[in-house]
């Protein structure tokens, strides 16, 4: 069985937010859109985004690291957001493991978002349905796009090539290989959600006689 996913390489992510806005740009006019914005030109502008880039600081000066941390829906293999949905709008596809919301079925009860520990769902207050990363399902199978463009918008945009898209159940996929070779890990493993998206950790390369 296929499980499509993103592998995010924290070793090279520079935190540029390209994945954030390219995602918004593709999806707002796509089937998952629109992704509305409130107060777009006023105080506290706030909008629907499927992907965010956060920043963490590790350690204290001068041994500080800054880690940029992109996060979208992790397309969990055991997605807690699915069974709780009373309407079946929130579902995980058999064929490729993508977790989606069917806007036509969603009653906007928000229950799925309570069940997601990752804060990966965003409610569209205007059309009153739950929205989230679709793994760009309307790109990746689109036969009218050239083959090399049948990838999520965020993956295509990423200047650091820090986002790898692929089938993590296929041991030969680049995604699986990178997870294997670079100690790819899942977020909040203690929760047993088995996120399909994986993260590759930082690797520090030291100089020859760098004792620091």
């Amino acid at each position: 069985m296929t499980q499509l996913a993103l592998v995010i390489d924290l070793n090279v992510c520079v935190g540029c937010h390209a994945c954030v806005t390219s995602c918004k740009e593709w999806n707002t006019s796509g089937q998952a859109g629109p992704m509305p914005d409130d107060n777009p030109y006023g105080a506290d502008p706030s909008g629907v985004f499927f992907n965010r880039v956060q920043t963490y600081e590790v350690g204290s000066f001068p041994h500080t690291e800054t880690v940029h941390f992109p996060k979208s829906c992790l397309h969990c293999e055991d997605p807690p957001c699915v069974p709780v949905c009373p309407t079946g709008a929130s579902h995980k596809r058999e064929a490729d493991g993508i977790v989606l919301v069917d806007y036509d079925k969603c009653i906007g009860c928000k229950y799925c978002s309570w069940a997601c520990p990752y804060g990966a769902r965003e409610f569209d207050e205007h059309s009153q349905v739950m929205k989230k990363c679709t793994l760009c399902v309307d790109r990746i199978y689109d036969q009218t796009l050239p083959e090399q463009e049948r990838k999520p918008a965020c993956v295509m945009a990423c200047p650091a090539n820090a986002r790898i898209f692929g089938d993590i159940h296929d041991p030969d996929s680049q995604a699986s290989q990178m997870i294997r070779e670079q100690q790819g890990y899942a977020l909040m493993p203690e929760l047993g959600t088995q996120p399909a998206n994986h993260y590759l950790p930082r690797h520090i390369r030291r100089g020859s006689d760098d004792s620091a």
């Binding site: 954030v20 965010r52 956060q54 920043t55 963490y56 590790v58």
Partner: peptide, 17 residues
């Protein structure tokens, strides 16, 4: 690492989350 702090959630004006 014992000290990991968020310095930015990636948005400033608030969101559903």
């Amino acid at each position: 690492h014992p000290e990991v702090r968020q310095t930015s959630m990636g948005l400033m004006g608030g969101s559903y989350n």
